[in-house]
Every structure is written in C-alpha cells, then in structure tokens.
Amino acid sequence: MRIIDVLLVILCISSVLFYGYGIYAAITFWIHPHPIDPQFHPPVTILKPICGLDSYAYENFSSFCQQDYPEYQMIFGVCAYEDPAIEVVEKIIQQFPDVDIHLVVNAQIIGTNLKVSNLANAVVAAKHEILIIADSDIRVGKDYLQRVIQPLKDQKVGVVTCMYRSLAKGWVATLEAILTSTDFHAGILVSNQLEGTKFACGSTIVIPKQVLKVIGGFEAIADYLADDFKLGYLPAQKGYKVVLSNYVVDHVLATSTLIDAIRRQIRWARCIRVSRPWGYLGLLFTYGTVASLLLLMAMKGSIVGWMVLIITWVMRLLMGWAVGVNILNDPIAKKFLWVVPLGDLIHFGIWCYGFLGSTIEWRGQRLKLTKEGKLVRH
C-alpha cells in the first residue's frame, strides 16, 4: 500500500473507533436518567436576550410562560425600543397575566457581544438566585423547568445545560438540522463521557448568581463570541461541576438560503476553532465518510476499498441513529438519516475553510475573531 493509502486507512479506523465510542456514550447517557424530585423546585429567573424577530417568536416565548412550576420570573432583554420583537413580548405579557414577566429595554453596551450586554442589563431585574438563560429561538415543554433544575440538588453543580433538536423547513435547514443532531451532539456526548461536560450551550444554561459572580459576571464574557461556551467553561475552571441534562429542547431553525447557512456554519466552525483549537484539529480523525471515499478512489474501486467504505458508513449511520433518533428523538433524523454522508462531505469542506481567516458575520455585523476568541469590530 502507498503512504496515502495507509494514512487514509488510519483516518478510517480512527473514525470507526469514534463512531463506536459515540454509540457507547449515547447508550450510557440514555440508561442513566436524572431522577426527578417533585419537592425540589426553587424559584428561578429566566433571562431571554433578544435581538430582532426570530421565526415563530410568539410560540417560542410563550412556551416558557406555560411551565408546570410554582414560582418563576421571566425577563426579556432588548437593547432598542425599535426592536420588532418588543411587540411580541408585549403580547406575551398581556396574554399571560399570571406569569411574572418583565421587559427590560436598555442600550448600555458592556462589550462587543450585544447578546451578553442584553443579559447584563436584564439580570439587574432578576428576583431569584437561580438564573436560566435560553436563546430566543428555543421552545420547551411544560416540564422544562422542573427537569432542568434537578441537578442543582447537588451543591457542587454550578451549571446545567441541554442538548437540542432542530425544527426545520426546507432542504437547507433540514441538512443543517441533520448535522446538528447526528454530528455536533455526538461530539457533546463523547466529550461528556470522556472528561465530563466543561462547556454550556445557548439552548439552556442554568447558573446560580453566586457562580456567575465567581467567574466575574457577564462582564467576563462580554467580548467573546462563544459566550455560552464560556458560561460553562469558566465555572468548570473554578471547580464547579457542569451537568448535561437529559432534557432535550427544541431549536427553531429559520428557513434560509444555502449561502446564509454556509456563513452560519463557518461562524460556528471558527468559534469552535478558537474556543477549543486542539479539539477542532482533532475533528480530522472523525470524518470517516470522507476518508473512506477518498480511499476508495485512491485504491481505484478495489474490494478492500469498498469494504472499508461500507464498514465506515454503516458505523457512521449507526452513531447518527443512536444520537439523533434514540437520544434526541429528532423527527428529522428519523426521516432523513440517509442524508448524513452528504452532510459530512459538506461539513468537511466547511471544517477546512474554518482554518482560513477570522472574519465572521453575525446579526448584521461584520466582526473579527482574535486568537483568544474575542470579537473586535472589523
């Protein structure tokens, strides 16, 4: 065998091992559910940072106002009175008079990341010790608060976070959703199994005020793109446990063009690259669908090449099923699991491109990422 063949075989073997461990991590996570104590329901404040009007905003916001939970407060943080989402928030306030809902409009900026500024402005009005942060495109069920709060019974826990499944329409959004459920979340489960969770996702971040104070408050992350990652990483560095909840929220993925989707994926890729550079480089050893296809071409369609490709692709699809279907119960993964290899090919191209440049586009702004992961205006 030529050197290139050997290298490609190594990449295929490493990928198959990763897929196998991903399946194991999914099974382990599934058989160890978090117990629910109906008597544990401390009062909480939900912080909802808003910038612009997302798809199905009313449905997303209202889902947080229908919780089977005795005492909670909800605060929407907006930076400008002209924001179109305010009209939806005011409608929510009128239709849910029994829920303690506040709208904070404050243009004060504490850093380049405007979302974090919204959070910092909103938290001033928080009545309760425990904060729950969830992005504006997240939708939840009525048992959400009761379940995500449970890990805080352990006083060593400083942060709780959640995985998510995407609600998508259109082939572009569907492809994005498939990659998220079968690839991104597989990586989360593998990381959780290997070293424990040391980061958080914007889908849900449960964090007590005291823990937020220990890491320096929202000011400590005000210039970072990966603000959600930092809200898990910094407490973990201070010795707090970060728990991955077994509650899965819904993420409403807006219908977009292929160009918009690629730009979004490039932004996330560069965000991961600066947040976890070695982890990002290590993704090379997980693209088995690409490596096996290249090996088949390099070996000119030999039997060995076909055998390696079939084994690799079967393991990839099994991992996608274990995570996307079994753990996330993602209807898109159930219906379009066969699209995973195509998604991997596209994602590999985005991964390669993620090494180039440091400019991103986010919420209409053109920003530049520093080596430390901070945002500066371009």
Rank of each mutant, 00 (worst) to 15 (best):
I266Y: 11
Y224F: 13
I207L: 06
A220K: 06
A254F: 10
E219C: 06
A222K: 03
R276L: 14
L258D: 06
H251A: 08
Y280K: 10
S275F: 13
L244T: 07
N246M: 07
R264D: 12
V243G: 11
I207Q: 00
L244C: 15
A220P: 02
V274L: 06
V248D: 05
P208W: 06
G217L: 03
V242K: 02
P208S: 10
D250L: 13
W278G: 03
L231D: 01
V248A: 08
I221C: 00
S245R: 09
A269C: 08
Y280G: 13
L283F: 12
G279N: 09
R264V: 06
G282E: 09
P235E: 02
L253R: 09
E219Q: 11
V252S: 07
W268F: 15
E219W: 02
R276C: 10
I266Q: 12
D228W: 02
S275K: 03
I221D: 00
Y247P: 00
I262S: 07
K209F: 03
L253Y: 09
W278V: 15
S245Q: 10
V211S: 03
L234T: 01
A269P: 01
H251I: 00
Q237T: 11
A220T: 05
A261L: 05
R273A: 08
D223P: 04
I272Q: 09
R263A: 08
L253G: 03
A226H: 14
Y233M: 12
K209P: 08
V214W: 02
A269S: 12
V214T: 13
S275H: 11
R270C: 07
V249W: 01
L212G: 00
G239F: 13
D227L: 04
I215R: 02
L244F: 10
D250N: 11
R264Q: 11
L258E: 10
Q210P: 03
A261Q: 12
S256G: 05
W278M: 14
K230T: 04
R264P: 02
L281S: 05
Y280L: 05
V249M: 07
H251Q: 07
D260I: 06
A222C: 08
Q210V: 04
V274K: 10
I272K: 08
Y240A: 01
L283N: 08
V274F: 11
F229A: 01
I262P: 00
Y224E: 00
G232D: 03
R264T: 08
R263T: 07
W268Q: 10
V211K: 04
V248N: 07
I207V: 15
Y233C: 06
S275L: 13
G279M: 14
C271A: 13
P277C: 12
C271V: 07
K213L: 04
I262V: 11
S245T: 12
Q237E: 12
Y224N: 06
I215T: 00
K238G: 04
Y247V: 11
D260K: 12
E219K: 14
V242H: 02
Y280T: 09
A226N: 12
L283P: 00
L244P: 06
R273S: 05
N246P: 04
V214P: 00
I215M: 01
G216N: 03
T255M: 07
L253P: 02
G239Y: 09
S275E: 09
W278Q: 14
I272F: 14
L231P: 01
D227M: 06
V243L: 11
F218H: 03
I207S: 00
A261S: 15
V242N: 01
G282P: 09
S256E: 14
R270F: 08
K213A: 09
D227E: 15
D227R: 02
